[in-house]
C-alpha cells in the first residue's frame, strides 16, 4: 500500500514571493512543490505526496479561522493518511501557521501530523503538545538536516512503527512521560551517573525537577462564630459501596456527598476505600478520618455557625498532581459559590 501525504508550505517556499505576497490566500496544488520534492524522494515508494496546500503567512496569521477552515477543507479532500508542514525554522508566523494547521488536521482528521521548527519559534510553545515538532536549526541553511529528520518521523508514523523517546527520535517532547526499556538496569545507570557527577563529566538526569505552584494560604477567618465550614478529605471516605466508583489509588475523580442530615459516620453508612493505608480503624469509625461527629458537637456548641451540607472526598494515593490540581480548583469554586468561609482538609 502506498500512503497518501499532504504537505503544507507558505508563499515563500512555494516560490510565489516574499513579504509582499504574505497575504496570499490558501491554494492547493497537485503533487509536490518546493521542499516537498526532497520529502517525496526520501519517502521512496512507501508514501506519495499527493498535494501541497500553500498559504501566505500574513493571511494565516490575520485570518486564522478562515485560513484554517479553507486549508482543512483542501487537505481533507485529498484524503491523506498523514500530514506534514514546513519546516518553518525560526520564522514566527510560518511556525504558527504550521503548528496551527498540523494541530487542526490531527484533531479533525485523526491522522498523524509532523512539522518542524527552531526550538525558540513561538509555534513550539503553542503546539508542541498537539503535533510532532522536529527540532531544526534557526534558518533555511538547516534544510538539509531538517527534511530527512521530518521525513523519518513521518515515515515512522505512517507505517505505524513504535515511536521512541523525543530525544532519540528528534522531536520536541509533548510534555508526556512514557516508560521504555533501556539497555542497562536502573542500578547500572545510577552508578554510571554518580561516577560521571563525581568526575565532573556531563551526565543527563532522567527527570528534571518540576516546579510546583506555591499557593498562598487564605487569610484567617474573621469571626468563627459566623463561619460556614466545609469538610474535605483525601482519606478515601465514601458512602458505603463507593457509589461513584472513586478509584482506590491514582484517583481521577472526587465525590460530593450530602451530610446535612448526618450526625455521625458509622460502618453502616460510610467506609474508606483508600488504597494507601490500613483501613481497619477507619472502617470501624470513619470519623477518625472525616471528623463529622466532633464537628457536629462544636456546631451545637456554637463554636462556628454551620457545617457546609456537602463534603468532598477522594483518595490521595498515587493521585497525579494534574488531577489533584483540578479537584482543588473545582471544589474551591463550588465552595466559593456556596459562600463557605473555611474548609477543614483531612489527609491520611
Amino acid at each position: 500500500m502506498t500512503y497518501r501525504i499532504v504537505h503544507y508550505i507558505n508563499q515563500f517556499y512555494a516560490g510565489i514571493g516574499g513579504e509582499e505576497k504574505a497575504d496570499y490566500a490558501p491554494e492547493v496544488r497537485e503533487g509536490v512543490v518546493g521542499p516537498g520534492m526532497q520529502i517525496q524522494k526520501l519517502l521512496e515508494n512507501d508514501a506519495v505526496v499527493v498535494g501541497t496546500v500553500i498559504c501566505g503567512d500574513g493571511f494565516y496569521g490575520e485570518n486564522t479561522e478562515e485560513a484554517r477552515a479553507k486549508c482543512l477543507e483542501m487537505i481533507a479532500a485529498l484524503k491523506p493518511d498523514a500530514f506534514v508542514a514546513g519546516p518553518a525554522f525560526n520564522a514566527g508566523r510560518y511556525g504558527f501557521a504550521c503548528g496551527d494547521i498540523a494541530a487542526a488536521v490531527g484533531e479533525k482528521l485523526g491522522i498523524p501530523t509532523v512539522t518542524a521548527m527552531y526550538h525558540e519559534n513561538p509555534g513550539v510553545e503553542l503546539f508542541s503538545k498537539k503535533t510532532y515538532i522536529v527540532a531544526t536549526g534557526d534558518s533555511a541553511r538547516a534544510m538539509g538536516q531538517a527534511l530527512p529528520a521530518m521525513t523519518k518521523l513521518l515515515h515512522k508514523l505512517v507505517m505505524k512503527e513504535e515511536m521512541g523517546p523525543a530525544r532519540l527520535e528528534g522531536y520536541i517532547h509533548r510534555g508526556m512521560r512514557k516508560s521504555f526499556f533501556h539497555e542497562k538496569s536502573g542500578a547500572e545507570r545510577a552508578v554510571d551517573m554518580l561516577l560521571a557527577k563525581l568526575r565532573g563529566e556531563p551526565y543527563r538526569t532522567e527527570y528534571e525537577m518540576p516546579v510546583f505552584n506555591k499557593i498562598p494560604p487564605a487569610p484567617p477567618v474573621k469571626d468563627l462564630k459566623k463561619a460556614k465550614i466545609a469538610l474535605i478529605s483525601s482519606g478515601g471516605i465514601v458512602p458505603k459501596g463507593n457509589p461513584d466508583h472513586i478509584r482506590v489509588s491514582s484517583a481521577e475523580s472526587y465525590g460530593a456527598y450530602d451530610i446535612s442530615k448526618l450526625e455521625d459516620m458509622t460502618p453502616e453508612n460510610y467506609e474508606s476505600i483508600h488504597g494507601g493505608y490500613d483501613r481497619e480503624w477507619a472502617n470501624i469509625d470513619p470519623d477518625v478520618v472525616l471528623p463529622l461527629d466532633v464537628m457536629r458537637e462544636l456546631e451545637a456548641e456554637g463554636v462556628f455557625a454551620k457545617i457546609h451540607p456537602v463534603f468532598y472526598t477522594t483518595t490521595g494515593t498515587g493521585t497525579a498532581v494534574a488531577h489533584a490540581e483540578r479537584f482543588g480548583q473545582e471544589i474551591g469554586e463550588l465552595l466559593k459559590n456556596a459562600e463557605v468561609d473555611a474548609a477543614i482538609l483531612t489527609s491520611t
Binding site: A166, R177, F180, K184, S185, G186
Partner: peptide, 9 residues
C-alpha cells in the same frame, strides 16, 4: 534499580 525500565519524554 533491578529492571531496565525508565521514563522518557
Amino acid at each position: 534499580g533491578f529492571n531496565k525500565l525508565g521514563c522518557e519524554w
